[in-house]
Design a protein around this nucleic acid. Structure first.
Lengths: 229, 229
DNA sequence: CGAATCTTTGAAAGACGTCAACATTGGTGG
DNA sequence: CCACCAATGTTGACGTCTTTCAAAGATTCG
């Protein structure tokens, strides 16, 4: 159980840091972060921030998963992204200095650090590596979203589910995918019932294995074919 | 005819510059741009860049309109964005220092300046206002794309057409919207035939006026209702 | 163990895409 | 300047994918 494993993570020894935006910080900056960040335990389904509120800093996921979503006009969620350990969440609004335009909620119990913007933004002026990293990250997300739009517009639900499962495989790494049917439907962009029927098809076709809510992709190669990519 | 109006635009007197990313440049920077940029006339349907090629700089639209699109796996275009006079195009790939992930093509004859990356990127290090402007612009586009995704996932084609027409109204300002049916369909994310049928409906409902390929929104307020927003 | 939530299935209706034929338009060369 | 052709736009018919609503089955958690 994560709650028992909870600890105040150290930035200097954090393995994630090398791979993410904070990889280029110098020692003085890391020490400053270390002293000023906070580190919190979140239960499943806790909100990190909501659409319309103002950012006070950025969240750095140490362990756990977070969905980033937007509510459509009828209140239905569209999941834009699922972030895992090592990823920074909520930096867009902080850089733009405007309200969040999406919401973020934990999908499982998580340890998440928080860096106040007063401790983060000044580094932008002094650390060109950080600045470049941020530009690249924003760029990468723009690219992802252009693909997302194109898939939404041109692919069938069946194809989108295949694409989504392949993406979720990356997020869940070795573990089986563990999302509610509703969240998965809101990621694929379909009705829950349609999603369930298609999962059944995939199972019968030997593409996936289902254990209650846990899903394992058995044949990623065939899945790629199904996705039409 | 634009071809006759073609001129080598001056950065220092360019009216667009005040409103776009280049608004915060200092005089020395403007003069440097002025001396190093080039300015070109494009016919309708000319490519500025294509998916997969590497950026050498950034395009600054002086006059005209440009579609930014991506090809899906079956070769069908999805239009992600339509840029008008004043907007910079292609900067994402330049900042990220990677290949374009989308293509850009003129929708009408246009005058477009080109700034080589060697003349642009160094300013990032020296001009914090430019840097912030870029962060904000990337942020804005990320927000737009999250909305785009949500609309694609949750709205009917009829609603998406209404949304698209309202967006296109902004792009075309006072002039009537002037896009091929295919481009419009590729923006809305639907089949050309479906688009045509819905345009007919809108016309019969008094929402729009159609003159061959030119479309005028007659009742934006009612259009907003139709869009479901 | 039981209530609440989440998941699954069925049936019916509708939205949308595809195919094929036809009409209109705009640009080109004679 | 006109006639013609290729490209673009339009319409109809049809099938199917997807959603919606309703009800029954599982799971989970207190």
């Amino acid at each position: 159980m994560l709650e028992n494993n909870f600890r105040n993570v150290s930035c200097s020894t954090c393995l994630h840091r090398k791979d993410n935006l904070l990889g280029g910080l110098i020692e003085a900056e890391i020490n400053h972060l270390e002293d000023h960040k906070s580190c919190n335990y979140y239960k499943k389904n806790q909100l990190l921030f909501v659409d319309g509120s103002y950012p006070r800093g950025v969240f750095c996921i140490n362990e756990g998963k977070v969905k980033i979503f937007k509510r459509g006009d009828e209140g239905k969620e569209q999941i834009i992204q699922i972030a895992k350990g090592g990823e920074l969440v909520g930096f867009r609004a902080m850089f733009a200095e405007e309200a969040y335009k999406v919401s973020a909620e934990t999908l499982e119990e998580s340890n998440i650090c928080f860096i106040r913007k007063e401790d983060f933004l000044p580094m932008l002026d002094t650390n060109p590596m950080l600045r470049n990293g941020i530009l690249k990250e924003l760029s990468r997300e723009l690219t992802d979203r252009a693909d997302f739009i194109t898939n939404m517009a041109q692919k069938s639900v069946r194809q989108r589910l295949a694409i989504s499962l392949l993406l979720l495989m990356e997020v869940y790494q070795d573990e089986p995918i563990n999302l509610s049917r509703e969240d998965m439907a809101n990621f694929v962009g379909t009705a829950t019932e349609t999603l369930i029927r298609l999962l059944k098809d995939f199972k019968e076709e030997g593409l996936i294995e289902i254990n209650t809510r846990k899903i394992t992709v058995l044949d990623p190669k065939k899945m790629l074919l199904v996705s039409g990519h």
